[in-house]
Design a binder for these strands. Structure first.
Lengths: 211, 211
DNA sequence: CCTACCGATCGGTAGG
DNA sequence: CCTACCGATCGGTAGG
C-alpha cells in the first residue's frame, strides 16, 4: 500500500497556478501552450485539465487571486486607522512588497487580462478599479484642496506608474531592491504632490480616466 | 491602362507597419497571426511576405523605428542647449507627445521586444539604454549632490514609469489628455526630487538597474 | 460510480 | 501576387 501517491488536489493546483504564472509572464498568454504548462508541472496535459477547466480560467484565476491580495492590503491598511500621510505611505510600501513577491502574477494582471472573456475580464477590472479608488482617496487625503476632486485619480495613476513600472527594471541581483525603492517613491510623491496644479484645459482637447 | 494600381512599395510597407502595430498592441505578438495582418491591410498573405521577411522582422521594425524617434527627440532637445530644469521639462513634454502619437508602437516596444531574436533584441535594448542614460543625465543635472551618481538612474526610471504607464489609463475621450498630464508629471517630479534621499542598504539585500 | 490520471488523437489553424 | 499547400503544433478531449 506504500506506493507513490499524487500530491493533494489543492497543493497540486497551487503549483500549477504558480508555474503557469511564470510561463505567462515570460512568454505572454498566446505564446504559452497548455503543453508547456503541463510539462513545467511534470504532468500530462489531460492531467492538467483535471485541475483547470481551460486556458482562460487559468489566467483568470492567477489575475483574480493577485488583485484579491491587493484588495486585502487595502483593507489591512484601512484597519490601521492611520493619519493620511502615513496611510498612503503604508499603502505604497505594502504594494511594492506585494509586487516583489508576486512579479509573475502582477505581469499577468497588467498584460494578459485582455485575453479573458468579457465577464471574467470585468470582474478583474472591477477589483482593479476598487484598488485605484482606494489609492485616489488616500491621495486626496494627503492633498486637501479645491482641485483634489479632479486630480486625485490621475495623481494616483502616476503613483501606480512608478511602482508598476519597477518590475521592468529592478533586477534581483542589482543595486536597488523593491524595498529600497518604496521610500524613494514616497519621498518623491509626498515632496512633489504639493507643487501640482490643475492643468488648464487645452482648446477643445479632452481625455479622462477610465481605470 | 487606367486600371487600379497598387500603392508604391514604400507607402504600402508603411501602411503594413502601422496596421501590424495596431494588431500587436491589441492582441500581443503571439496572439496576432500574419493572416490577420494581411487581412487588415486588404492583401493576401503571400503579398504581405513581399513586404516583410517574417513576423519577427515586422515587430523589430516597429520597435526600432519607435525607439529611433525617441533618440531623435533626445538629440533635438540637446540642440536647444537649455538649462538643466527646462531641458528635462522639454524631454518630458516631448516624450509624452511622442507616445501620444505612437501608442501602438510604444506598446510593441514595451511588451513585444522579448519575442525578437537575441541580435535584434539587443539592438533595440541598446537604443533604449541610450535614451535612459540621457534621462538619467538630465535628472542628475537638476539634482546636484553627493548621491546623484547613485540615484539618477532609478529616479529616471520612476519618471519613465509615470509617463510609460499613462497609455494604460488615459482614454481618448476622457477628461485628461497626454498633453494635460505632461506638466503634472513635471510639477510632481521637480517638486519631489529635492526630497529624495539615498536609501540605506538593507542587511545583505541588493538589487540594481539593468535598463 | 468515484478519483486521478494515461497514450493517442480529435478538428482547426499557426507561420511560412 | 494568387491558389494551394507543407510540417508542426495549437487547445481540448476521446476511450480505457
Amino acid at each position: 500500500m506504500a506506493r507513490g501517491r499524487a500530491p493533494s488536489y489543492a497543493s497540486q493546483r497551487e503549483a500549477i497556478l504558480a508555474q503557469a504564472a511564470v510561463l505567462f509572464a515570460r512568454q505572454g498568454y498566446s505564446g504559452t501552450s497548455m503543453n508547456q504548462v503541463a510539462a513545467a508541472c511534470g504532468i500530462s496535459k489531460p492531467a492538467l485539465y483535471h485541475y483547470v477547466r481551460d486556458k482562460q480560467q487559468l489566467v483568470a484565476t492567477i489575475a483574480q487571486e493577485h488583485v484579491a491580495r491587493l484588495e486585502a492590503v487595502v483593507r489591512d491598511v484601512d484597519c490601521l486607522a492611520l493619519e493620511p500621510q502615513p496611510r498612503l505611505r503604508e499603502l505604497i510600501v505594502r504594494f511594492v512588497a506585494e509586487y516583489a513577491g508576486a512579479q509573475d502574477a502582477h505581469r499577468v494582471l497588467t498584460e494578459d487580462v485582455r485575453f479573458l472573456g468579457a465577464e471574467e475580464r470585468e470582474r478583474v477590472l472591477a477589483a482593479e478599479r476598487r484598488v485605484v479608488d482606494a489609492f485616489a482617496a488616500a491621495v486626496a487625503a494627503v492633498r486637501p484642496g479645491a482641485d483634489a476632486v479632479a486630480m486625485d485619480k490621475p495623481l494616483a495613476m502616476l503613483l501606480f506608474g512608478m511602482i508598476n513600472w519597477m518590475f521592468t527594471w529592478i533586477k534581483p541581483d542589482g543595486r536597488f531592491s523593491y524595498d529600497d525603492m518604496a521610500p524613494v517613491v514616497c519621498d518623491l510623491f509626498f515632496g512633489g504632490v504639493g507643487a501640482v496644479t490643475l492643468p488648464q484645459a487645452g482648446p477643445g482637447r479632452h481625455a479622462s480616466i477610465a481605470a
